[in-house]
């Protein structure tokens, strides 16, 4: 009798146990709580978090350098984001989001160039205004740095998103920002 009950229980539990591991593909919202988290690489939501933090940090500066230009909105040239991680990163995942936030705020016009100077000759051309295009009020540059620490099977990945808004007239940084995203674990996971 006992064995029969046990068999019935196993028969009920087995499909639940095995089917519980499988998930059918479905659409998820960006940044939802079912996001995939990898300690060893930058996930898409990390770019969104860094861009969100950078945008709100820059826009909430008070007084704001973007408001202190001769001709409003400020003209900002986005130059290359240096990628010092072991993964291939499309910098537009970061710059496009920040660019959208700045243009929608009405505080900046954006020009994204792959390499500073590609459209403008070199930085001195900015200063001497040799080009017919509008001389940028600011340039935005950045760097993504990865550091990985290990203790046994536990891996900790730290990704630093560094950005700065530079005044080409005196080449000084008028805004500097750093967002560190730290992830730790022994394996990748779904949900945070």
């Amino acid at each position: 009798m006992k064995n029969k009950i046990l068999l019935v229980l196993i028969a009920i539990a087995a499909p639940v146990f095995f089917s519980g591991c499988a998930t059918d593909a479905h659409y998820v919202q960006t940044g939802d709580k079912q996001q995939i988290i990898s300690a060893g690489k930058i996930n898409s939501q990390d770019f969104a978090t860094a861009a969100n933090d950078a945008s709100r940090n820059l826009l909430s500066m008070d007084p704001n350098p973007l408001d202190k230009v001769d001709r409003s909105p400020a003209f900002v040239v986005f130059s290359k984001i240096v990628n010092n991680t072991d993964q291939s990163v499309d910098q537009d995942l970061l710059t496009q989001k920040i660019g959208i936030a700045l243009t929608q705020s009405g505080k900046a016009q954006i020009k994204i160039v792959d390499k500073l100077g590609e459209d403008y000759g070199n930085i001195d051309d900015f200063l001497n205004d040799k080009k017919t295009t509008r001389r940028p009020d600011f340039t935005l540059s950045g760097k993504i740095i990865q550091t990985v620490d290990r203790a046994g099977r536990t891996r900790r990945g730290t990704y630093s998103f560094q950005m700065s808004l530079n005044d080409p007239k005196n080449r000084a940084q008028v805004w500097m920002f750093e967002k560190e995203i730290v992830k730790q674990g022994t394996r990748d996971a779904v949900g945070f």
């Binding site: 919202q29 960006t30 939501q45 978090t49 969100n52 933090d53 826009l59 989001k97 936030a101 945070f192």
Partner: peptide, 11 residues
């Protein structure tokens, strides 16, 4: 509603 990256979910 006005949406952009400033409306993203933040952990």
């Amino acid at each position: 509603q006005v949406n952009n990256i400033l409306s993203a979910s933040v952990p």
